[in-house]
């Protein structure tokens, strides 16, 4: 047993953290909320250049050939920065799904950073579908790769304005069929697990930031002649959020290991991670707002950028009760 990341994995995380600290500051996220794409201009290309975007594509397809254990720390960083990107859909879900189904044309282009693959599994809505070149969509026991030109999109506005969600109308055809039957169904289950895992890691990252910015704030804000962080009621709120987050984090890492190694219990491990992370980020969001007071309740202050992303991701890829139910079923109850 050795539950730790390698030096290389940690270094890669630090590199991504530095990049996001410069390129994905709250101002940039805020700007993305109101711009036409919902994303930070130019940032995806940098993530492509660094090898993050195609981290999970096999080396044969031009990717980095890395796995979920390498990716999980980067998803956490994405959450910390509230990165508005396709790192869950494209990187964590689409590339492995294409590889698993033996698709190679789109995979090669995606691995080269030439196209963005949208994902319509695990959710009724496709994030950034308007910017995807191709969409992976499910119809009964079939998985299809549908070119963007062949779908009709309806925007579904999210409380997190950077999340450009769309419902997708499309017609299955032989031309778009990638796989069908039990293999396709298993691939969809695996895809949902990868999505839930990535979302869990992002939730942990968001919760972490919510805690950090709150600690900063209550260490400065004074009322009754003392910093409010000196009041026990405030301390306990933050401590509770920290406990929830610190116990969600290892579950995300375990789930990453389980998925990367295709262990028999990987589905349950993912559900443990997502249920705990969804609850942790909800708790952290409520705590953070409460400890900030009214300043946190404004649009101008940055807190809501993380809070709203947290609400959205906590409910996406299966919320806490969905995943708890799945754990229950795996326990035979």
């Amino acid at each position: 047993m050795q539950f730790a990341f390698t030096e290389d994995q940690l270094l890669f995380r630090d590199t991504v953290r530095d990049l996001l600290a410069n390129e994905c500051k709250p101002e940039a996220v805020r700007a993305a909320w109101l711009n036409p794409t919902g994303r930070v201009p130019g940032l995806w290309d940098k993530l492509v250049d660094m090898g993050v975007a195609a981290l999970t594509a096999p080396e044969a397809a031009g990717g980095m050939g890395m796995n979920e254990v390498d990716l999980v720390l980067l998803q956490e960083e994405a959450g910390r920065a509230a990165l508005p990107e396709v790192l869950i859909e494209h990187t964590a879900v689409a590339l492995p799904l294409l590889a698993e189904l033996g698709e190679s044309a789109w995979l090669a282009k995606a691995a080269a950073g030439e196209v963005i693959v949208g994902v319509g599994v695990g959710s009724p809505y496709v994030l950034y579908a308007d910017q995807a070149d191709v969409l992976l969509l499910v119809h009964e026991d079939e998985v299809h790769a549908v070119p963007a030109a062949d779908v009709t999109l309806t925007a579904q506005r999210s409380v997190d304005y950077s999340r450009r969600l769309f419902s997708v109308a499309w017609t299955p055809s032989d031309a778009t069929l990638l796989a069908k039957g039990p293999a396709a169904q298993q691939a969809v289950v695996d895809a949902c697990d990868r999505g839930a895992l990535a979302a869990a890691a992002q939730c942990v990252g968001i919760a972490q930031t919510l805690i950090e910015v709150t600690v900063d704030y209550v260490g400065q804000r004074e009322q009754f002649g003392k910093v409010v962080g000196s009041y026990q009621a405030v301390k306990h709120h933050i401590a509770n959020a920290l406990i929830a987050t610190e116990f969600a984090r290892p579950l995300a890492y375990v789930a990453a290991y389980a998925v990367a190694n295709s262990t028999p219990h990987r589905g349950r491990d993912v559900s443990l991670a997502k249920a705990a992370a969804s609850d942790a980020v909800d708790k952290a969001a409520r705590m953070a707002l409460q400890c900030h007071g009214a300043i946190g309740y404004t649009f101008e202050y940055d807190l809501h950028l993380w809070m709203k992303r947290g609400w959205a991701l906590a409910a996406s890829w299966g919320d806490a009760s969905f995943h708890r139910d799945r754990i229950g079923r795996s326990l035979g109850i």
Binding site: Y125, Q156, S158, V159, S167, A315
Partner: peptide, 11 residues
């Protein structure tokens, strides 16, 4: 998954 949608979203 519909919880995050704003009032003007069709769903």
């Amino acid at each position: 998954a519909q919880g995050e949608l704003m009032g003007d979203a069709p769903d």
